[in-house]
Design a protein around this nucleic acid. Structure first.
Length: 181
DNA sequence: GCCAACGTTGGC
DNA sequence: GCCAACGTTGGC
């Protein structure tokens, strides 16, 4: 059981979009950075917890929690010439790029804004808060996970599924937006 | 819109 | 293998 932070620009695919997706699930496609790819391909396991972060947002913030529901498999958008992140160098037999599937578990509303995260001592070492950090898929420690849950008013459980029925925070909102891929 | 930080590309 | 040029990310 491990914990991760996934970044997404809400204009592209927000946590509300994830909540509105079929099964509240999506394939985390389009990652084209090798370090992030390695986490997706090698380290992220079924049931792992995911902190859903909105980058390029006003303010940048943590907007929800998700869980991994399918481990690494080739990213289909890499083979699709019409996709934004098409990569002609990635072959079906030897794929370069991978995705996992995640499911929305809980919205965090109000979201945890970046300036507030910077004030939290327990998060001081977080990769997200490092100057110049751009990694879109990054590991999160158990301590950081618990600190985020506490800030969100949720129980300090290591089992992300347990948050589904926790009464302390809002339930995911729906959205009519669709994904731009 | 600006720009710092970082990753990738390609000439040599 | 080096490194300059370029493209991208993402906070501000």
């Amino acid at each position: 059981m491990a914990y991760w932070l996934f970044k997404s620009e809400p204009d592209c695919f927000s946590f509300a979009d994830l909540c509105a997706a079929p099964g509240r699930t999506t394939g985390w496609d389009g990652v084209r950075n090798f370090q992030a790819r390695n986490f997706l391909r090698d380290s992220i396991k079924l049931g792992d917890g995911v902190i859903y972060y909105h980058s390029n947002a006003e303010p940048p913030s943590i907007a929800g929690l998700a869980e991994v529901v399918e481990e690494a498999h080739p990213d289909p958008t890499a083979f699709d010439p019409s996709a934004d992140h098409y990569d002609p160098k990635s072959k079906l037999e030897t794929p370069t790029w991978f995705q996992v599937k995640i499911r929305a578990v809980r919205a965090i509303d109000p979201p945890l804004a970046l300036p507030k995260l910077r004030e939290v001592a327990a998060l001081a070492g977080m990769e997200l808060l490092r100057k110049g950090s751009r990694l879109s898929v990054q590991p999160v420690t158990l301590e950081e996970w618990h600190a985020v849950l506490e800030l969100a008013g949720l129980a300090p459980t290591p089992h992300v599924k347990d948050l589904d029925s926790w009464p302390g925070s809002s339930t995911p909102r729906s959205s009519r937006k669709t994904r731009q891929v």
